[in-house]
Every structure is written in C-alpha cells, then in structure tokens.
Write a protein that binds this DNA or RNA. Structure first.
Lengths: 218, 218
DNA sequence: GTCATATTCTTACAGTGTAAGAACACAAAT
DNA sequence: ATTTGTGTTCTTACACTGTAAGAATATGAC
C-alpha cells in the first residue's frame, strides 16, 4: 500500500470502482435525493464514471438493489441468545427500525422486496429461532412472526415514506378548509410530527410483543 | 339513449374515453399484469386509443394514480356509528384488507402514496372519529390510529406484494440447501401459504385491537 | 350548410435500462 | 522494452418511457 495510485495530482486520479463503492454511492444518492430521481446515469455521475461501467460489477440495476437489500439486512444486529426472548425481539425491532431510518430513501423499496438472498434468509431464520426459543408452536410462531413483521414494515414505511412524504400530484387542501372539513385529523395533527414517532413505535411494539408472549399458551 | 352509437358494425366504433373507463382499464391492467409493466402506451393499447388521448382526461400519470387511490379509499365502507367502536374498527380493517386484495397489483403503490385528496382525508377523519367515540385522549388516539394503520399497511403489503412476490434478481436458494441452512424458515414454510393469511391477519388484528381498547385507561 | 368546441391523434424530445463491442490499463512473460 | 493477456472502462446504439405542442377529426349548435 505504498505508492499505488499517487493521490493528489491533477491527473484524473479516481478511486477505482468496486462493489462496495458503488453500493455506498447508491445509498448516498437515494437517501439524499430519493428513489424517484435515481438512475444508472446519475449514479455514474456520482461515481465519476460512465453508466455502463457499473455493469461490470452488477449485471443489472435489480442486482444492485439486491446487493443493497442484502447490506441493509446485514446491518441488523441479532442479540445474544442468553437474553429473554421477548427482549431479543424488542432489540431486533429497534435494530430494524434504526436500519430503516438510516436509509429512508431506500427503505420503501426494501419493504416490498423479495428476501431470498442468503444474508436475508439467514436473518429471518435467526428471528424465527427466537420464536422457537420462546416455546411457540409451529402454527403460533409462523403467525406471530408475520404479525411482528407486519408491524415493523408498516411502521418503518410510515416513518420513511409515510403518507405525508409519498408522491402525489393533487394539491393539498388549504389550511382553513382542512380544519373545517377534517376536524378530527386537525386535532391529532400536532401528534403526527416526527418527534412523536419513537413513542408511537414503542407503544405499538409493546402491544405486539404482548400478543406474541400471550400466544405461547394457545 | 336510443341509437347513439350503432354498436356492432365493423366501423371502428368504440366506447368513448372517460375518467371512469380509463381508471377501470388501469386497474385491470395493473392488477392483472403488475405495476412493473404498466405504461401509458400499454394502457392506451388496452383502451384502443393512442397514449396522448389519456392526457385529455388526466394531466399526468401521477394524476391518474391519484384518481385510482381516491377510488380505492372510496371503496372502504364505514360501519354505522351505533355499533361498538372496536367492532367498527374491526370491520373497517377487514374492509381495508378486502380493498387491497381486490387490487393486489396497485396496492403497493397506494401503501406509500400521500393521502391528501378530499376522499382519502374524509376516510381518515371518519376513522379518527371512531377513536374519539371510544373515548381516547388526543395523544392516545393519535398513537393508536397510527399503530392501527401500521398493522394494516404491513399486512396488506405482505399479502399483495409480500416478500415472496416482490421483485428480485437473485436466483432462489435451491430446496435442499434451503432446508439445511434455514431450518427454522423451512419449518414454518407450509404456514406461509395464502390459505393461512386470513387467520394470521385476524390474530394480529385482535392483538392490535386489544391494545387500542386498553389504551383508554392510560 | 358553417362554425365552435371537445376529443383524439401525430410527431417529437429528453430521459431510462442495457446489449455489443471497442478502447484502455496494467501485471507478467519474453 | 516490447509483447501479451486480462480485467476494467467507455462509446455507441436501441427499444422503451412520460409528455409537450400542435394538427386532425368528431360532435353538436345555429
């Protein structure tokens, strides 16, 4: 690692491309400017290369997205197995949410993405093992696992791309009409701000976890 | 309405375009072939016209999607207010799910769409009124309303575009390796089939509803 | 008929993902 | 130092997208 690239001269020196660098740049671009404006050409611009150069590392945009999904899943920590199983689920839920909030632009894509890479399946498998450790029957843990996932997906989607942020061409209803025609929404409006998201997430999570714990008897 | 169009002759007779007909055709196309292959040109083909003719009725694709979202929201029945409030929430949850399942191709778009049309806001307002009827404080109903929505969104997304259906370029892990490397997933596999979706949805919904009911005291 | 208006189509453009292959870089072998 | 090979990057091209601008057509009023 002595003088392999002569950094600092004016001569078109550039970090060479790599899977890692491309994935990083894609996250940076998407989480900063949104999925809607993402394209291979813009990503290439960000990387300082031509669009087709990316295809030497990823055979298609879909494969790049797969790699990004994989990376997101790998970021989620799985707590040690000597903790209480419910506590482990709670920790993983927070870990999942933290991942989503680190990638607000990308998360909506992850939420509807098929999870069939080894990394993703490995995580799901480990989550299911926690349900097994809790002593749930096959039927119970398959259900509770899904309910757990439903809640996490819905919550993270709302916090990242929620209906206040999603795309829409309709112009918003003006403030005064809004207050008159939708008084119940207006009343809770202040509580819909981001600073209440964590509390809401926690409250809902506890309910879901309580349901999971209770399902052990049935 | 006697002989306005002479139906049945070979002469290029065609139902004239309309907002309604375009929206219907868009639902048909998307729910049959998926969002990925949808385009204005293909929709025009389905309608028997040219792509630009659609723009006389909707100023952009985004506006068409807005109209479709609106229509979906209008399809959800709101139960009469003399029922028990929890029962009303349960009914609306099933109504919402039924809407999603009627439009499996379109739902993923709806799930991340901003809801700021009058129709959509009207529905949200009526849902919030149910929480008010239940006697929840402003803070409690703002939270429980969101948790309710999180669950519905996550569940319907999974049932329509779930991770078993979403896009992915990665080739699936072969069966024998799967059983060896991901035994916990393999064990619950049979329970992940669509015939178990309803039971799972109901189980999770009851947990969420119980949480909502319990939040009245706090 | 003529005319006004509403509807539909033609053409065109900038942007997309990516196939095919040319051009380049650089280490090892001569 | 030159050649060779191999991995990396770029050039060009194509079929597709959403939609702007305006021409052509249909429809009904007078």
């Amino acid at each position: 690692m002595s003088e392999r690239k002569r950094i600092g001269t004016k001569k078109k020196v550039r970090e060479p491309l790599s899977h890692e660098r491309i994935v990083q740049a894609a996250f940076a671009l998407i989480d900063r400017r949104g999925l809607a404006v993402f394209s291979t050409r813009r990503l290439a611009e960000e990387l300082g290369c031509e669009a087709m150069s990316i295809y030497h590392y990823f055979p298609s945009k879909a494969h790049l997205f797969d790699a990004m999904v994989d990376r997101c899943m790998a970021e989620i920590p799985v707590p040690p197995s000597d903790d209480d199983w419910i506590e482990r689920l709670r920790r993983m839920a927070f870990g999942y949410r933290a991942m989503a909030l680190r990638h607000p632009g990308f998360y909506p894509l992850l939420a509807v993405h098929r999870l069939n890479t080894r990394t993703a399946l490995g995580l799901l498998d480990r989550v299911l093992k926690v349900f097994e450790a809790g002593g749930l029957s096959v039927a119970a843990r398959s259900r509770q696992f899904r309910v757990f996932g439903y809640y996490l997906t819905g919550a993270c989607l709302d916090e990242t791309a929620g209906y206040a942020r999603g795309p829409s061409a309709a112009e918003p209803v003006p403030g005064d009409e809004f207050a008159r025609d939708f008084p119940s929404i207006a009343a809770v409006g202040p509580y819909f701000k981001p600073e209440h998201h964590l509390k809401t997430f926690e409250a809902g999570l506890e309910v879901v976890l309580e349901g999971i714990r209770a399902s052990r008897k049935s």
